[in-house]
Amino acid sequence: MRDFSDEELERYSRHIILQDVGIEGQEKIANSKVLVIGAGGLGSPVALYLAAAGVGEIGIVDGDVVDLSNLQRQVIHTTADVSVPKVLSAKAKMEAINPNVKVTVYQKFLDASNILDIVKGYDFVIDGTDNFSSKFLINDACVLANVPYSHGGILRFGGQTMTIKPHESACYACVFDSPPPANAIPTCSSAGILGAVAGMLGTIQAAEALKYIVGVGDPLYNRLLTFDAKSMNFRNVNFKKNPKCRVCGGEGIKEIRDYEAVVCEAKL
């Protein structure tokens, strides 16, 4: 059993008091490694909450630099960070919140050539990306590497998320099969996004990650949570794992390939 210092006991006291977390749960958190892909609208709250929670090691991936138009929702960055690589800006905030956390940065975009190696080293992955090709790539990699992850997506006033335990629960491809054709969806720059919606969804993803690590509650397995902030209606849509799934089914994928990019202009 790990002996928490008094500083740590105090810092994490509100976790430890929770009967379902306790010392044991906090220890699991401290020993866990989580990869956050994307340091944007979703990645910001996720990275902040995971750092605050004391996740032992957090990897954060993003190839971009901070842009003024990001600041409306990507709350980990500040005005002073404009033009700074997002991962560095994020790392600084996470370490400021909690110096006990080890932050590893990947200042790059993921593709078929590098994603598997990075994902392999983590216990849990957060998809905080802004485009379908990345989302399918992440799904493929997590299934192949057998790493559980949280999918998330947002648009205008709405969001959706599900948690995937490869080979046990439905994967992203079980539900959506493959990316829509490039012109079938509104481009994100024309669609826009309410900043707070990113926060809502990101914090749900952070909570899912922590639930998974501690082993408490029911993760969003086999169900897609969707919400509409205008009406504030939340809905669970149940799915089953597809035995013939292109990715995780019996014949599932054996190797990684890139999907055709449908990159959103207004990065989430």
């Binding site: 059993m1 002996d3 006991l9 006291s13 509100r14 430890i16 008091i17 306790g22 010392i23 044991e24």
Partner: peptide
């Protein structure tokens, strides 16, 4: 409170 409870849990965990 609540650090006394936190520390009690710490001791119990050992």
């Amino acid at each position: 409170c609540p650090m006394n409870f936190v520390k009690t849990k710490m001791e119990l965990s050992k």
